[in-house]
């Protein structure tokens, strides 16, 4: 049962590998990017899930809850930054795909290679 108890790790691993599979196996560049986003999201979840303390409150200090149990706020802060990074990466990736589509007229990787080989 202990294995299932750590279910958030399983979610992390499954999401990670699903994303990774898409990045490696898909030839469509948009699908690759979707895979990449999933891949990153898995890591975000890992961080946030471990920041949770069982029975803990949201870490907001007020005068009367100074001695109650809080969840760890740091991972959320970190992941906020990481999400910004992830969004920028995705945006840049999509921009490149748009440019590729303009120049090559396709976003399938094999077709692009075919065009370049000619």
């Amino acid at each position: 049962m202990e294995l299932l108890g750590l279910y958030h790790y399983w979610v992390f691993a499954i999401l990670l590998m699903t994303g990774f599979y898409a990045v490696v196996a898909k030839v469509n560049l948009i699908k690759k990017l979707i895979g990449l986003t999933l891949f990153q999201a898995a890591v975000f979840l890992l961080y946030i899930s471990v920041g949770m303390v069982e029975g803990g409150d949201a870490p907001i200090f007020t005068a009367d809850n100074a001695d109650s149990l809080f969840s760890n706020p740091l991972p959320q802060v970190l992941i906020l930054t990481a999400i910004v990074v992830g969004i920028s990466t995705t945006a840049l990736g999509l921009a490149i795909v748009v440019r590729i589509n303009e120049v090559y007229g396709t976003i399938e990787e094999d077709e692009i290679q075919e065009i370049d080989r000619r």
Binding site: F20, V23, L29, K32, L36, F39, Q40, V43, L46, Y47, V50, P75, A82, T89, L92, G93, I96, V97, R99, I100, V103, Y104, E109, I112, Q113, D116
Partner: peptide, 30 residues
């Protein structure tokens, strides 16, 4: 124009590399 597919590959591999790093750091933080 071949710069574009090259960059895309670079971006995908670079992001995977950075994410792997993030996982590693996460585990240490844990």
């Amino acid at each position: 124009r071949r710069a574009l597919p090259a960059v895309f590959k670079y971006l995908v591999m670079g992001t995977i590399g950075a994410t792997f790093y993030l996982i590693g750091v996460g585990v240490i933080y844990l």
